[in-house]
Design a protein around this nucleic acid. Sequence first.
DNA 1: GAAAATGTTGATTG
DNA 2: CCAATCAACATTTT
Length: 256
Amino acid sequence: MAELPDLEVFSRILNRRYSGKTLEKIDVEVAGKLNVTAKKLKESLEGHQLSEVKRSGKTLQFHFGRDRILGLHLMLRGELVALGEKPPKFPVLIFHFKGGKGFAVTDMQKQATPTLGPPVNEVPDALELDYPVLKKLLEGKKTTIKTLLMDQKKVRGIGNSYGDEILYHAGISPFSIAGKIPDEYVKKLHKSIHSVLETAIKKIEKENGDELTGELRDFMQVHSAKLKQTPKGEEILSEKIGGRTSYYTKSQELFH
DNA sequence: GAAAATGTTGATTG
DNA sequence: CCAATCAACATTTT
């Protein structure tokens, strides 16, 4: 969980289910990563109406009015679950809305990070990245394109799996030096970022329907430990880049 | 039972 | 100063 397309779909579902409802109570089960005290969070949000849920990069933002915004990063293992009969496993935060419904943020690793009053982030979101900005981002950079795409200080929202999918789609090797990629391929990369992410959003939205749960990655073309071949029959290679496994094929062009 | 797993941060090394 | 690597976080899945 927790790359841009999943979060985009979650934000839409959360909006449909909870926007307009008043937060009756919020339980803070794990306060370790919270930037304020549990008491302060409760004082700030309880009794207020959820106006909107937004996605920003790999974070969600719950708007309870001006100056009452809760940011949330799910990190590696964070999940969102609707409250049911059983109490959620590994709860971090539990939102109870008036009328009895609610959801929980869970994380077995306790790394999910809620932030009251998240600072405005100037780094472009992957879905808002236009071609001239991307071109400028790559110019003169000596780092590999895979590392750069995953760098949240440069573009927000792309992680290890979609990074591989995007580069496969664009026909660029993840080991290519960012600054050495010709314009023609930077254009392809720009198109691939949008089309891979938007296609994923549509597929996840279709599968998930109105359910909060689920982690759909069936449509991955290269980034999967199970796959040996792409749908086109190309052999999938894997190698670590920056401590994380990258999946790619020989058909992706290497610029260096 | 070992290894890897969608992310980030801070320390460290070149 | 920039780039790259690694460990740490806690648990499940392969």
